[in-house]
Write a protein that binds this DNA or RNA. Structure first.
Lengths: 154, 154
DNA sequence: TTTGATGCAAAGACTTTGCATGCTT
DNA sequence: AAGCATGCAAAGTCTTTGCATCAAA
């Protein structure tokens, strides 16, 4: 559904970037646009190829550097994967990921389901962990690893 | 406490390896011994250096290949990290990790605390996720990201 | 005008592979 | 004896960096 929605080449990013002290360049606009437009957690190379195909010229080094800048600014998030190349994600609110063991693909758990999961964790369990470990928990990363069920339709 | 416990150079690994269809070589024994003996989730290079220091000669390529063999056999687990190099873990039962944002170091959450956390998640929330996503959840990876509290002792 | 961003190529970090040799089974 | 493991070096992948040029503020 959201698979091939067109990338708006110039969303209202000026303000967003300004807020985060990022210069608003063409490359940053199209890169962030592409990252926002997908929920497939692309790798740097995915994004590079996607933008090249769309004639939005950008160099691979800039893709890497810019994604890194987005992450520092809190506009994106890097997801480490077992397969070597990092994947990126424009939405930064706490959410869960599912990872398909077969393909390595990472996807988001829909907000409401994720919230239900997080809300189910009793606060005192978190506090117990924090005090026992002497650790401030700032973020909970949860990944559901498994595989999609076979499609049973004939 | 378990920081510097001596690595038993020849634990009873013959059987373990046999069960998992792994040849029992000197390199595999010392490598698995070293991995078992620590809870610091070492990188391949950590292990290589540690063993080299102990005169347990092994090549870096063999460390990589052998860790990969352990993972395939289910005797170890590879943890992807944001910083590039993978970390390894000999214990494979479901457990939680904490990651220090400052140092990048990953550590285990003690079994009992982890269990308390996992047990706090209602089964029906999991089932809800599975049916909504049409996905079989085989493993739950949870990482508590944050930082250790400053030591207040004077 | 100043400062930071971009692009290119080169370097760097981490990991895997090809192949000859050696050790386990 | 057969077959997998090892070690080395080379190749591969992914990412970062140096530096000259260019664009945003």
């Amino acid at each position: 559904m959201s698979e091939h929605q067109p990338v708006n080449p110039e969303p209202d990013l000026r303000e967003l970037f300004a807020t985060h002290h990022l210069r608003c360049t063409r490359q940053r606009r199209v890169l962030y646009g592409a990252l926002m437009a997908t929920d497939s957690h692309p790798t740097a190379d995915h994004l590079f190829q996607e933008l090249s195909r769309r004639d939005h010229s950008i160099s691979l080094a800039t893709v890497y550097n810019t994604l890194e800048a987005f992450c520092r600014a809190g506009l994106a998030q890097r997801i480490a994967t077992p397969s070597g190349s990092a994947r990126y994600d424009a939405s930064v609110h706490n959410h869960l990921h599912i990872r398909d063991e077969n393909s390595g693909v990472v996807a988001d758990v829909p907000e409401d389901l994720g919230k239900r999961f997080l809300d189910a964790i009793p606060r005192e369990v978190i506090q117990q962990l924090e005090s026992h470990l002497d650790f401030d928990i700032r973020e909970l990363k949860v990944e559901l690893v498994g595989r999609y069920r076979p499609d049973m339709r004939q």
